[in-house]
């Protein structure tokens, strides 16, 4: 009895507030837009009995999905989201790996402090961290002031409200997710392997590519997924740092819902975004599982 209660409460909560909402999104994505409240049709009405239910299901169709393929705004937004997410994941790897490497090489008494310094930004408000770049990247912002002062440029650069600013924002906010798994992998690395490689005639750079990188592969993969997955559906960063030409699907969904009030299309956008996300999520889980099995 007690066991039943223990399982039932969180189970029921998640069913009602996670799974059912999802089924509703799926259902509305198959409905038609209508000028009514709620703004879609058909609505499920149990008073119609079996015939009503049948009429309800026969009124559902894939029209919204056809609409998404016919209007090039949507597939361009999906493609550009994937591209932005991939590019900023690679940038984050490029920036994060040397930091993780430096942390793993640091003296033991320094490591807890360095860890703390990586984790601290993660606890700080995401919104504030994105916002902090607005003052840096704007036309009269600190970066331009600095570059003009050094004489590297003579005209202020336009960075804010471009895709470049979006890359900077994603790399900045998700960097801890890249650093931590790579650090965890590098920390476990046995230094004698590197010595062996050097004894066998590798240069330090060769030893790095032939020993360190392959052995930190799992950390690299985990870090990349941890950056890529949230970046793909990102809304805050493109809407604060990106410009009007920055197309990201999270922003499109938001605008479809709040500005155009087109619930069925917004739901269809959500369903397809999820279908795209399922691939990296499954790959990520497989990687984690392999790692766990390897550790056992």
């Amino acid at each position: 009895m007690r066991r039943f209660f223990l399982i039932a409460v969180p189970y029921a909560w998640l069913l009602v507030l996670f799974l059912i909402p999802f089924v509703i999104v799926l259902k509305i994505s198959l409905s038609d837009t209508a000028l009514s409240i709620p703004p879609y049709t058909p609505t499920l009405d149990f008073s119609g009995g079996w015939a009503g239910l049948k009429a309800f299901f026969s009124a559902l169709d894939l029209e919204n999905f056809w609409f998404l393929t016919s209007d090039d705004l949507y597939w361009k937004a999906y493609l550009s989201s994937v591209w932005i997410a991939v590019a900023s994941t690679l940038l984050a790897l490029f920036v994060g790996y040397p930091i993780a490497y430096g942390m793993a090489q640091a003296r033991d008494e320094w490591r807890p402090t360095l860890m703390m310094l990586v984790i601290l930004p993660f606890w700080t408000s995401f919104l504030i961290r994105v916002y902090s770049w607005m003052g840096i990247l704007s036309q009269e912002g600190f970066l331009n002031q600095f570059l003009l002062w050094t004489g590297i440029i003579s005209e202020p650069l336009i960075i804010l409200n471009t895709n470049t600013a979006v890359y900077v924002g994603i790399v900045y906010t998700y960097l801890p997710f890249m650093i931590l798994p790579i650090y965890a992998a590098l920390e476990k690395l046995d230094a004698s392997l590197l010595e062996a490689a050097e004894d066998l005639g590798c240069s330090r750079i060769q030893a790095f590519w032939l020993v360190t990188v392959p052995l930190s592969k799992n950390g690299i993969i985990a870090g990349c997924f941890l950056v890529f997955i949230p970046a793909l559906g990102e809304f805050v960063i493109p809407s604060l740092l990106g410009g009007s030409q920055t197309l990201m699907i999270g922003k499109v969904l938001w605008e479809e819902f709040f500005n155009n009030r087109d619930w069925p299309v917004a739901s269809a956008v959500a369903v397809i975004l999820l279908m795209i996300l399922i691939i990296p999520i499954i790959l990520f889980q497989r990687n984690e599982q392999k790692q766990r099995e390897a550790e056992q």
Binding site: Y11, L14, L15, V16, L17, F18, L19, I20, P21, F22, I24, V25, I28, P38, I229, P230, L232, G233, E234, F235, G250, L253, W254, F257, W263, A266, S267, A270, L273, L274, L277, I281, F284
Partner: peptide, 22 residues
């Protein structure tokens, strides 16, 4: 259901809950 919300884009979670509440 425990792990899915961790990777679910916020826009989707928000949209689905709103549609439930309505």
């Amino acid at each position: 259901m425990i792990y899915a919300p961790l990777v679910m884009p916020e826009v989707i979670t928000g949209l689905s809950l709103l549609l439930l509440f309505i």
